[in-house]
């Protein structure tokens, strides 16, 4: 089981949940699962073409997935996928 951790800004698009549990073997699969449950939440993270939006970062094991293998980063049971979008508030 993989845990997708959503930021405050996206929770309203996922029924208010802080965390979504999905079965997935990679970051890409986890986001597909998120999209199946909450299409709008996925659309805030990935473009329609399936690329990570430039104002969003994804972290696995506290490291940017770009430092792993991008969307192909392998997820193991118990991993969490943290979504960190850009916010501007000050």
């Amino acid at each position: 089981m993989i845990k997708i951790e959503l930021p405050d800004a996206l929770r309203s698009l996922a029924g208010g949940a802080r965390e979504i549990a999905v079965e997935a073997g990679s970051v890409s699969e986890a986001l597909d699962e998120l999209g199946r449950l909450y299409p709008e939440a996925r659309l805030r993270i990935l473009t329609r073409g399936g690329q990570v939006r430039p104002h969003v970062n994804l972290f696995v094991r506290e490291r940017d997935i770009r430092a792993h293998d991008g969307l192909n980063t392998v997820l193991e049971d118990g991993d969490s996928l943290l979504v960190v979008p850009s916010v501007a508030g000050g």
């Binding site: 805030r44 430039p54 970062n57 916010v87 508030g89 000050g90």
Partner: peptide, 25 residues
């Protein structure tokens, strides 16, 4: 390097509506 470009307008949270708990800043 963290956020290469700002969000598209339709995905940017509204500055005036997002709100913030005063202690957080």
């Amino acid at each position: 390097c963290l956020f290469s470009e700002p969000p598209d307008p339709e995905f940017a949270p509204s500055c005036s509506e997002a709100g913030v708990l005063g202690v957080v800043p």
